[in-house]
């Protein structure tokens, strides 16, 4: 029962918490906990999607008309940006798993940069709308549309806003992880934290994969 890992010769004891027997148990527990947390995040967003489906069910013409004020090309750009960031995130995790710290650090920073690009695009989208008077809910003062604008735009801002909040939180955590990675904290024995952050980031991407067609491509 040596405490060094078979191939990489890294001492496990450094990372083992007092209440766990070994790293395998600790890592498996960490990942299981994260998947459970992701499950609840999914159900959290499901409420927003339910509101969307109900509103679209009640006001199909409003959705058809209002969504034309959303620029689908920017939405598609953001989709590509997030999908690429998912790739770099997955590569970062792989870097940690294979003791390739350079790859880990580079891909983490790439993910962070792409996340910022996403937010910048969102910023332009939002400010453009504010200029037109398209504000959330009953503050709407924009162009006339079929039906009730507050329903569509209220949901648009809440949905993308909540998603954006999760992106911001993700960026914060990613920066912290990148700084830790630069200090060489992560390796093939101790990388579950990076994996878990990766799982969170992929979830953020997954939500956007559904938001994009539902908000921008209503036909």
């Amino acid at each position: 029962m040596s405490s060094t890992s078979a191939n990489s010769g890294i001492d496990e004891k450094k990372y083992l918490a007092h209440h766990f027997q070994n790293m395998a148990q600790q890592n498996a527990s960490g990942k299981l906990g994260m998947w459970l947390f992701l499950g609840q995040e999914l159900l959290f967003f499901s409420g927003l999607f339910m509101a969307y489906f109900a509103a679209r069910y009640f006001y199909p013409e409003t959705f058809l008309d209002a969504h034309t004020y959303l620029d689908w090309k920017l939405g598609a750009l953001n989709t590509v940006v997030l999908l690429t960031s998912s790739l770099t995130m997955a590569l970062a995790v792989r870097g940690a798993q294979t003791n390739n710290n350079a790859s880990l650090v580079m891909n983490l920073w790439l993910t962070i940069i792409l996340a910022f690009v996403f937010l910048v695009v969102k910023y332009f989208e939002y400010t453009h709308k504010f200029d037109l008077g398209i504000l959330p809910g009953s503050f709407y003062a924009g162009p006339e549309i079929v039906g009730q604008p507050n329903v569509f735009f209220g949901l648009y801002f809440v949905l993308t806003g909540m998603h954006g909040l999760h992106v911001v939180i993700g960026i914060g955590v990613l920066i912290w992880v990148a700084l830790q990675a630069q200090k060489g904290v992560y390796n093939s024995v101790n990388h579950v934290f990076v994996e878990n952050v990766g799982l969170y980031w992929h979830l953020v991407d997954l939500i956007w994969i559904f938001l994009f067609p539902l908000l921008y491509l209503v036909k």
Partner: peptide, 30 residues
């Protein structure tokens, strides 16, 4: 784990309805 997040989003939507007037729960707003 499965049910509580739905309450969380319900309450947030209620707050949004009350402050922003989105129009999903209140008939006067649609």
């Amino acid at each position: 784990v499965l049910a509580t997040p739905v309450l969380a989003i319900t309450l947030l939507l209620l707050i949004a309805e009350r402050t922003l007037g989105i129009g999903i729960f209140d008939p006067a707003m649609g």
